[in-house]
Amino acid sequence: MHHLPEKGGALIVCNHVSYMDALLLSGACPRLIRFVMEEEYANLPPLRRFLKKAGVIPISASNRGSIREAFREIDKALQQGDLVCVFPEGQLTSTEDMNKFMRGMDIIIQRCPVPVIPVALKGLWGSYFSRYKGKACRGLPSRFWSKLEIEAGKAVKPTDATPEHMHAEVSKLRGDWK
């Protein structure tokens, strides 16, 4: 994680393997990370207050007003020098492979050009919180301990950080370890 800047705004792009991804990234980073999260999950009653205090930025892909508000909040956070993390796959992977990175990160860096940090989560595929068995968090866990690794790559200039390039960078960091 030594590639994450000690200060100043940056956009983190990361593969999305499990429902624990944000929690694990938060625990591994000494700085606060503001996560962009699907509004439906961010507004779940048992989590809403905690996620709001944690600085989560809710977004709903089906609501233009929500999208505009999320982009305003992301711009503000980056300009204030915060780290903001997006999972450009848009959803948990349902296979051990990464999904295509969707648009959104390119809009963010076009509006607020900051360094883009590729991050790979390794070892979470097959966990209780992944979609290894079709749906996450169903049935009994099949394992209780896993070796996990979080690896951050070197910052990519905003002008070079296309969804395709960042997908390749995260894939390279992840390697064969799912």
Rank of each mutant, 00 (worst) to 15 (best):
L124F: 05
R138S: 13
V170L: 03
K52V: 09
P118R: 09
F71H: 07
P163T: 11
S127R: 03
K53Q: 06
G134I: 04
Q80S: 13
F35L: 03
S127D: 01
R103K: 15
K157H: 11
I109A: 07
E151V: 15
L124P: 06
G27I: 10
V84T: 06
L24E: 02
L124I: 00
V86M: 14
A54C: 11
A42C: 02
A28L: 11
N99R: 15
S60M: 03
E149K: 15
L121R: 04
P118S: 12
P45L: 01
K7F: 14
L148M: 12
T93W: 05
I74L: 13
E169R: 14
M98R: 10
G175I: 00
G153Y: 08
Y19Q: 12
C14N: 07
R64G: 06
Y41C: 07
E149I: 02
S66T: 07
S127G: 05
T95M: 08
D21Q: 03
K154G: 14
F87Q: 02
A161K: 07
V56N: 06
S127A: 08
Y19G: 04
N99C: 05
S60Q: 12
E169P: 09
K135A: 10
K147R: 15
E89Q: 14
E96G: 11
E149Y: 00
L92F: 08
E38K: 15
I67V: 15
R34W: 03
R143A: 13
F101D: 06
G134A: 14
L4A: 09
R68C: 10
L51S: 01
G139W: 08
G8H: 09
Y128L: 07
V156I: 15
R174F: 00
D176T: 09
L83E: 09
C85A: 14
V119P: 01
W177R: 05
K53I: 06
D21G: 05
K147I: 12
I57V: 10
A61G: 13
M37D: 04
A10D: 03
A120M: 02
F71S: 00
A120S: 03
V119F: 01
P5C: 01
A136S: 13
P141G: 02
M1N: 09
G134Y: 08
F35E: 04
C137S: 14
